[in-house]
Design a protein around this nucleic acid. Sequence first.
DNA 1: CCTTGACCTGGAGCGCGCTCCAGGTTTTAC
DNA 2: GTAAAACCTGGAGCGCGCTCCAGGTCAAGG
Lengths: 152, 152
Amino acid sequence: MSSGQPLKPLPRDQDRDREPTLTIAQVAERTGLSHDTLRYYEKAGLIERVGRTTGNQRRYQAADLAWLEFLLRLRETGMSIADMQRFAALRTAGNITVADRLAMLREHRAELADRIRALRRNATVLDHKIDHYEQLLLDEVEHEQPGSDETT
Amino acid sequence: MSSGQPLKPLPRDQDRDREPTLTIAQVAERTGLSHDTLRYYEKAGLIERVGRTTGNQRRYQAADLAWLEFLLRLRETGMSIADMQRFAALRTAGNITVADRLAMLREHRAELADRIRALRRNATVLDHKIDHYEQLLLDEVEHEQPGSDETT
DNA sequence: CCTTGACCTGGAGCGCGCTCCAGGTTTTAC
DNA sequence: GTAAAACCTGGAGCGCGCTCCAGGTCAAGG
């Protein structure tokens, strides 16, 4: 979608392709994942084998990063590694799996809605308990010194 | 739930058979926890030592159950066992720890609010992805048969 | 009484999601 | 060219939160 004009300050050496690439350290910093986790995800099949230099070092491309960030959304919404593996496998299998992937996402989305609702219910229980403790503290103060100086 | 200290109809003697008690199996069923988990929680200090029969079998009282259910709210909102241990220890230590317990709950509540917000943000990302896949499916159908019969 | 099933204890084991290590190779900075 | 930093692989290890097991004791029905 663009030209191949050598007008940019290219990073040296191994980057002969048009697209800029990132080392594992750079991806780690950007995603918040550790080097080990990135390698683990690749070994586990969550991400397809990342491109390498001639010296076998990983060079991530923009698409890898985008996929990683989506994986992180799945992870943060509580999807297990096993399910992410399934999803990734479908993705690797190509367009014929779009319906399956959609089904997975819809189900996950529904579970997420349930979990958010449950958390909100539990939050109100916490709020009640907090109110209760606040009242206890007030009562204590009253009993000790009904209307005197206090240090917050 | 407020102001309830001196008016309890205490069974002053150690004869508490008046109060109904529950076996571990009954508590397991009511809470959804397994027998093993209940024993584990007790061993870990999340709940104080439960009363026993002369034959050393646990008999839970209403207060035990209420505390367990509150623990479950903490657990479901993501509090670690270690933090629940801290909270339980404060509770065991008595009223002087009310301020500390309040502080813990407030912090936990704030983290919970953060997590709910994050989940909602992620939910919208999922929604976009779902929309995207739906569009892909539509496009596929169009390309195959631009306006013809389809079997659902 | 006896049987059966619920319960007890201490401790080992497990599944998950990483995290660390050893020992080696590659890249970078000077 | 050389030293240091970054990276590689396979595999072991870890922390969490249970879960299971062995080997018993206890309780309720017939």
